[in-house]
């Protein structure tokens, strides 16, 4: 239940007179909903919202797209992906580019649908592009488990899954308080965020996604920050329970193990990635097809990296809105609907 009504929350936020507060929303869906509900237009000048690295598409390294492109074009597999990844530029090509040239790129709603496609088409090799954080990873793990249980041999996943705890460590000085991603906490529970407060003095609240929930979370931050000590609150208890979803955490742990991984803009964060455990090696597309190591090259003009760390606004980037638009994206943040640049471009450009 929310603490503040929409009216109360507005009053608290707009009445804030203290020193400047920098709030980072780490979740791309938050960025998107904040724009959609026009919430920025309510904020006084001394409250700044920074869009962080919480869009799986935006933080996925260029080399991952190159790997997917190579699988589809050189290994002739059917690449199954969420719609979000289709237009992300690789070093040379996006999945949309190669689909146009005849490669087999298929949009799916769920990784489980990709397993079903593999069953229906035993003549094809089906590879699912597994991106996402704790929210999306469990279903990818389930897909792998199902494939193994059903003896499906022509299915594998290309992993770029990431986890948030170590990323928070890399970001903790970027803002005064965080809007924690409600659906990640739905899986992980509250402990990660509590630890951040207790051990690192990082403040934040778990936020939901409706206008009412977002305003409630922002008002809670404004009130608590004036108390002058680190705080944590869960403003999304209707969905994100304190213990999270232990079964989902267990399935991640059963199928995947931590690894170092590269985040676009943040570099390599040790232990922040996930890869398939040895037991499931047969479902790891990199091993199955013996993919060479690919180092992608992002476009040097693009400042997505700094945008993702909250170091600059999308509109500070030289190519924003000029060379780089949702129609012709240069960086991943302009591609994904959740990307900070795309959201800035589509909803108002400042």
């Amino acid at each position: 239940m929310s603490t503040y009504s929409i009216e109360e929350a507005r009053e608290i936020i707009q009445g804030y007179k203290g020193p400047k507060i920098r709030i980072m929303e780490v979740c791309g869906t938050h960025t998107h909903e904040i724009f959609k509900h026009g919430i920025r237009s309510l904020l006084p000048e001394n409250i700044e919202l920074i869009s962080g690295p919480g869009c799986p598409v935006c933080v996925t390294q260029v080399g991952f797209i190159d790997e997917a492109v190579m699988l589809a074009t050189d290994y002739h597999v059917q690449v199954c992906t969420f719609g979000d990844l289709i237009r992300v530029p690789g070093t040379e090509k996006s999945l949309a580019d190669i689909r146009r040239e005849g490669a087999d790129v298929k949009m799916v709603y769920s990784p489980l649908d990709a397993v079903a496609l593999a069953v229906q088409h035993p003549e094809k090799e089906v590879v699912f592009l597994a991106v996402g954080f704790e929210t999306t990873t469990p279903v990818a793990c389930l897909a792998v488990k199902h494939a193994m249980a059903q003896g499906v041999k022509n299915f594998s996943v290309l992993t770029a899954n990431k986890t948030m705890p170590n990323a928070y460590q890399a970001l903790k000085t970027s803002a005064d308080a965080f809007l924690f991603p409600g659906h990640v906490n739905t899986i992980t529970g509250e402990s990660v965020c509590r630890d951040l407060m207790e051990k690192d003095g990082v403040s934040g609240v778990i936020a939901g996604f409706t206008a009412e929930e977002l305003l409630d979370a922002l008002a809670t931050i404004v009130v608590r920050i004036q108390e002058g000590k680190p705080f944590f609150e869960n403003c999304y208890t209707r969905v994100a329970k304190p213990e999270g979803n232990p079964k989902a955490m267990a399935v991640i742990d059963e199928v995947m193990e931590p690894c170092d991984t590269q985040w676009r803009g943040l570099g390599i964060i040790p232990g922040s990635g996930l890869k398939l455990r040895e037991k499931y090696a047969a479902y790891d597309a990199r091993r199955k097809f013996n993919l060479p190591k690919i180092e992608g090259k992002p476009n040097p003009a693009c400042r997505c990296g700094e945008v993702l760390q909250g170091k600059c606004k999308p509109s500070d980037c030289k190519v924003f809105g000029k060379g780089c638009t949702p129609q012709h994206p240069i960086g991943a943040c302009m591609v994904s609907n959740e990307g900070a640049c795309s959201a800035y471009f589509q909803y108002g450009r400042n």
Binding site: P138, V239, K241
Partner: peptide
């Protein structure tokens, strides 16, 4: 339930859904 990418990730209290 809260649905994401083809799975239920949480049960939601009915009156708040």
């Amino acid at each position: 339930v809260m649905v994401h990418a083809g799975i239920a990730i949480a049960k939601i209290d009915e009156e708040e859904a």
